[in-house]
Amino acid sequence: MAPQLLHYVVEFDDGTHFNVHIDPDDPSNLTIDGVDSDVDVATSPLGLVLTTGDGQRLPLTLRYEDGSLVAETADGKLHRARVELAESREWRTVIASQPPPPPVEHSGQIEAPIAGNVIALCVAEGALVTEGTAIILLEAMKMQNTIAAPLSGTIHYLVRAGQVVRSGDLLAAIDSEVAGI
């Protein structure tokens, strides 16, 4: 009897993907097809080699582990390809067909997370900041706490350097509309 092959889809971070048909009882028995135009997977004496769209050649390992296929490329830093059964991929499209949720808005009000002393304002008043930029250094519990912008926009400081603040005091407001972001 011909072995029952499981059909997996291997997908990389950039969306490129290919199919793997593998025999669960003998994981070394696998075939590869449906390779995306952007990638090329070929067997070489060293095993599988993945060639990406920009011509990079990466060794690719496929392992069958705990009931699922694991694909790994070693390109300096290890990254794992997303592997899923073709069947579950179809179910995913059902879920993905839901209408997208409304975007979540942030008020732009930044409160002191702890009582402390503002030791520095990190950017100029009215400057354009991007999400994650350090905007205030607050000293508390004898340590420096960096407060980062929770969203992108123009910043309006509500405190000055040297000011003592209580937990929950407003430190700054970020207006994302002015910046047109």
Binding site: G67, L85, E87, S88, W91, R92, V94, I95, Q98
Partner: peptide, 16 residues
């Protein structure tokens, strides 16, 4: 039928 509640279970479990 391929509805959402079922799709969520199918994605949760190993295929089939």
């Amino acid at each position: 039928s391929k509805n959402l509640a079922r799709a969520r279970l199918e994605v949760l479990f190993d295929a089939g």
